[in-house]
Amino acid sequence: MVAMEPEPVEEQGLRVRAGRVLAVIAGALFIALLLNASELEREAKAKPLGTERDVWVGIWKPFATVSRSLYLDRPRAWADHALDRGGTGDVFELPPATATVAATPTAPAQLVRTPSAEEPLRIWIGGDSMMKVLGESFVREAGGSGLFDPVHEPQLESGLTRPDFFDWPRELNRLASVQPRYDVFVVMFGANDAQGIIEPNGTIHQVEGSAGWVAEYRRRVAGVMDLLRADGRLVVWVGQPVMRSDGLSDDMAMMNQVYREEAASRPWVRFVDLWPLFVDSEGDYNAYIADDDGETRLMRNPDGVHFVREGGDRAARAILKVIRAEAKVD
């Protein structure tokens, strides 16, 4: 309260005792909690495996049980369904590939057709939060020529380890058969993938990089590559760049190895290695990198992970170069 000031008219009668206010706030949050408990539980389950996740799941679970038994979770579920929101379970299931593939396994002379102004290449570009800025840059770099028609759909905080946050297999399966079909898929995952992973049989691999973890992650990467396969279609798999944190960098290098190996055995996949583009002369992370024209520019976000525009542009040019080469565009 400001002293000396008479109470303004619009405030008269609106002052309430603090105890009653606390009751209203606590009551509101409690009701909101019951209405929203299933969603809170789902989000807690989507956290990286570990103690923090267990604690939050433990907190929300009883509320979710009560909420479900009283049907209080229904309004939210209906709304989510109407808006096509919400994820699925935590099992990474690869749908059977529906796209058409010729019986002959021999690779064609040219993976993807050469575009013209009348029939530009339809390109889908997406993935995790790394793809936000990079994809924007790609749309700009690729869009100028009139030969490419890019569609940019990143999903922040998504990845391949945790389908319970965003179900990429389901989404990519849908995109693979969309009409008119996409000629090129540019995908990038991994920035959120350095965390515990669960096999379909329920086996948990807590530590990223362990033999069991790599085997399950490899199955998923290979599965996504196969899912996107179609005649006359190019899949560009973009590797992760070096990160400021050494631990995160090691994880990215480990996953890049998986991408590289799986891409190598699939003629329709090209792996684009961003790593060398974002290290300094000593081979280390540096936010400032000498660009193609020799000028040193700020490439990375202060978080030491994401790109800023210049970094996105640099990565986008590398990706576009690969697509141009495959499509035989000068």
Binding site: G27, F30, A32, A79, L83
Partner: peptide, 25 residues
């Protein structure tokens, strides 16, 4: 007070439902 709490709760949940996906958004 109970009706106030319920109104606020519905508003909060509605905002959460309408929130575009991706927490970094």
């Amino acid at each position: 007070p109970a009706a106030q709490a319920a109104t606020l709760a519905v508003a909060l949940v509605a905002i959460d439902i309408l929130r575009p996906g991706g927490r970094l958004a």
